[in-house]
């Protein structure tokens, strides 16, 4: 009894010491800010510097077509970008995981990672150099005679999509590759041995095995795309109509923090909703997907 009591006290003290920094960080930097934002979003201005609780900021969002159109557009474009990323990444992951052996495999995976160690700003800048009116692609097309005059590729939805897919690629390729690597060749061989062909083996054996990675990859890509700011602004210019840009405008340009907070809460909600839905549908745990 004595020893038990003795050993328990320092343990508790140690636990408290470990817990304190985490709680401080979590509460002050993660939870409280979000709650403050929620609080501010619920305040409506009735006179200069006088505020009252109400939903007017949210009502404003639903009554002003520009706002919810932007919101919807952001969500839809994010979904398209996620699907495109998946379609483009899957063959590459498969190629790296299953068709390559030894050195080539490691090399290609590192090659996949390199662009993502480089700042997003630099990558987007690279696309601008390539795609603008005086850019490399336009010049090249003129040079080979495909077109008479210079072409502006920037500031279109397709360009925004290209940028979004590019930025998201790693977050799809890496989980897919590692999951496909864990699929033992004998499953694929068994599928063929029992008379299956490429298509049936793909849909019945490879895809079910990769499903967890597909879901977590999609969730992460969707989240990142939805919250992206740089790519739509730089590649889409004025016509980008991205929801994070609206938030920035409300806060920094218009100084309407109440409205901006409401937008922030909305963006956070849809992002969490999609994550939650994805996890629910695939019956996976949040902790697992994130790590």
């Amino acid at each position: 009894m004595m020893t038990k009591g003795k050993s328990k006290t320092p343990l508790k003290l140690g636990l408290l010491l470990l817990l304190c920094p985490l709680l401080l960080w979590l509460v002050l930097l993660v939870i409280l800010p979000q709650l403050t934002m929620l609080n501010i979003s619920l305040q409506e201005r009735i006179a200069p510097r006088i505020y009252e609780y109400g939903f007017s900021n949210y009502i404003e969002f639903f009554t002003e077509p520009l706002y919810w159109n932007t919101f919807l557009r952001t969500a839809v474009m994010s979904i398209i970008a996620t699907v495109l990323t998946l379609i483009i990444a899957f063959p590459i992951s498969y190629y790296i995981a299953k068709m390559l052996r030894g050195r080539a495999k490691g090399l290609l995976l590192v090659l996949c990672l390199i662009p993502f160690w480089v700042s997003e700003l630099v990558r987007t800048y690279g696309w601008m150099i390539l795609l603008r009116e005086s850019g490399v692609v336009s010049s090249f097309l003129q040079y080979i005679g495909m077109t008479e005059g210079p072409i502006e590729f920037l500031y279109t939805d397709a360009t925004i999509m290209l940028g979004l897919v590019y930025s998201s690629m790693l977050f799809m390729v890496v989980p897919l590759t590692s999951t496909l690597e864990s699929l033992d060749d004998s499953y694929i061989e068994a599928g063929y041995d029992l008379g299956g062909n490429g298509l049936s083996v793909f849909w019945q054996i490879i895809v079910p095995h990769a499903k967890p990675a597909i879901v977590s990859g999609c969730i992460v890509v969707f989240m990142l795309t939805l919250g992206n700011y740089l790519t739509p602004i730089l590649l889409g210019g004025k016509s980008s109509l991205w929801f994070t840009e609206q938030i920035f405008t409300q806060f920094i340009t218009r100084f309407n923090w109440q409205q901006g907070s409401a937008f922030g809460v909305l963006l956070l909600s849809i992002s969490s909703l999609i994550v939650w839905l994805g996890l629910k549908l695939s019956r996976q745990s949040f902790s697992k997907v994130m790590s």
């Binding site: 979000q34 939805l226 700011y229 922030g264 994550v275």
Partner: peptide, 11 residues
Amino acid sequence: VIPGVILGVSI
């Protein structure tokens, strides 16, 4: 899960 812009704004 919190987009960087939102994290910045809320802080």
